[in-house]
């Protein structure tokens, strides 16, 4: 349904110094059919290292699907995905080293904030002491140290979103995928959190792919904007 046009705007021409000429990840002619719908139709995109790339487009144009293809939650019908030049299209999501922040956060309701943030580390059999210190570090990074023992239903929307961010960052992913992470928040909080995301990106130098349908949001945070229609 949708065709990706290559970057049309470079808001911050000076991509951070960590970026190299070689793209960190590449989507090559990706196609994905969902039901009767060709949700992603021949999408190609280079994602530079250490910057925020935004996928901007109207509802239903296939932004989420593209992100899920990247994460490995869907298998592409055609095309390829590479990370550092190597194809990863055949890898399951748990071996891709890309984590995702979902639109509705998808926090684990039965785990505390700390439990959520430490989940990925425990799956990697990181020793408990290390998990604990890393979790503390991540919660501090998003300013939620005080809420470590609270359950998701005891947290506000903005706090939940921060937990989701910390959880995705805790495992030190190669690429962080964010699917409209701010759309469930009110306008004021949205601006605050997106500044926070930019700050985190600067601090950690992570490669991020950010999905939104809000043009202003896209322009204000991205190093590169890709428009889908």
């Amino acid at each position: 349904m949708s065709i990706l046009t290559q970057p049309i705007a470079r808001v911050a021409p000076g991509v951070p110094s960590t970026a190299s000429a070689e793209p960190h990840a590449r989507l090559i002619n990706l196609c994905k059919r969902l039901g009767p719908m060709l949700a992603v139709d021949h999408v190609s995109l280079d994602i530079p290292r250490g910057g925020i790339t935004t996928l901007l487009g109207p509802s239903g144009c296939g932004k989420s699907t593209t992100l899920r293809l990247l994460a490995g939650l869907y298998r592409p019908d055609a095309g390829d995905i590479t990370l550092d030049g190597e194809s990863i299209a055949h890898l399951p999501p748990n071996r891709r080293r890309m984590t995702m922040v979902f639109q509705e956060y998808a926090l684990f309701p039965h785990l505390t904030a700390a439990g959520n943030v430490g989940y990925g580390l425990r799956r990697r059999s990181v020793p408990a002491a290390q998990v604990k210190s890393r979790v503390g570090e991540m919660l501090e990074l998003v300013g939620l140290s005080a809420a470590a023992d609270k359950y998701p239903h005891q947290l506000s929307g903005g706090q939940q979103q921060r937990v989701a961010l910390a959880r995705a960052l805790a495992v030190d992913p190669e690429v962080l995928l964010l699917d409209e992470p701010l759309s469930n928040l009110d306008a004021k909080l949205r601006v605050r959190l997106r500044e926070e995301i930019v700050r985190l990106q600067k601090v950690l130098g992570k490669t991020m792919v950010f999905v939104t349908h809000d043009q202003e949001e896209a322009l204000s945070i991205s190093d590169q904007v890709a428009v889908m229609d």
């Binding site: 490995g72 999501p93 799956r123 995928l177």
Partner: peptide, 26 residues
Amino acid sequence: HPNAEQAALTLGATESAALRTILLPL
């Protein structure tokens, strides 16, 4: 929510670990 299981996968869980650590406790 199926997203919770998916989130577990992206965080490094295998499918059976996701069911054991997310679906079962819930």
